[in-house]
Design a binder for these strands. Sequence first.
DNA 1: CCGTAAGTACGACGGCTGTCAAACTTTGAC
DNA 2: GTCAAAGTTTGACAGCCGTCGTACTTACGG
Lengths: 112, 112
Amino acid sequence: MDDRIPPHPDVRTVPLQRVLEALVDPVRRSIVTQLCDATADLKCGGFDIPVSNSTATHHFRILREAGLIRQYYVGTSRMNALRRDEVDEVFPGLLDAIVSADRESSGTLSRR
Amino acid sequence: MDDRIPPHPDVRTVPLQRVLEALVDPVRRSIVTQLCDATADLKCGGFDIPVSNSTATHHFRILREAGLIRQYYVGTSRMNALRRDEVDEVFPGLLDAIVSADRESSGTLSRR
DNA sequence: CCGTAAGTACGACGGCTGTCAAACTTTGAC
DNA sequence: GTCAAAGTTTGACAGCCGTCGTACTTACGG
């Protein structure tokens, strides 16, 4: 009964500030990059990130509220999809520039 | 005698992380945008930013250490130049994407 | 030589943010 | 019906970061 699919913002209403705050964290940037490189949507547990489960949940929420990812349930798994087209339309070139630069520089995720 | 011109990093050695941390702050992003729109280099006092003098100094330092600006003295004024070409070479499309998005969204600098 | 203009350096302080562990919820499988 | 799998929620806590005022430095101008 309970559609516990959290609300997704319209990307056009998301301030640049929020998008950058989302992408400045190495873990979140890694999530976006992995989504970008994946051929299909990924469940939360399917990412290679060096943080606890609850911290991961936090990061996914930030990304969702920044309009960068779309989340939906499949059984007990929460799937994550990159909202590439929508983001590209509102912030042209941004995702590409950051993800491209991220691929080169982050062999391993530098833990602060 | 004292060349109190602080050291500038080679942009190729600057991690993406540092660049994004520099650009995530609204004040610093505004500085970069103003430099981008200006026809000549600007002295520190020549920017329209809503912070105190000492805070401004701090922001300029962050930008310099991120390889985004070059600073040099002219008399008692410290001039600031955007290192556009160098940054573009290492992080293609990044400056353009962020500055473009910033121009649209930040009529006034939203103070947190 | 003295004053003023332009910034810098130095603490100090408050708030935000990333992190975790522990308890809870919900779904699917047997 | 019961159990395990997958995440979420809720505090709590530490560290960083932006901010400011004050004191200091340096250089130009009269």
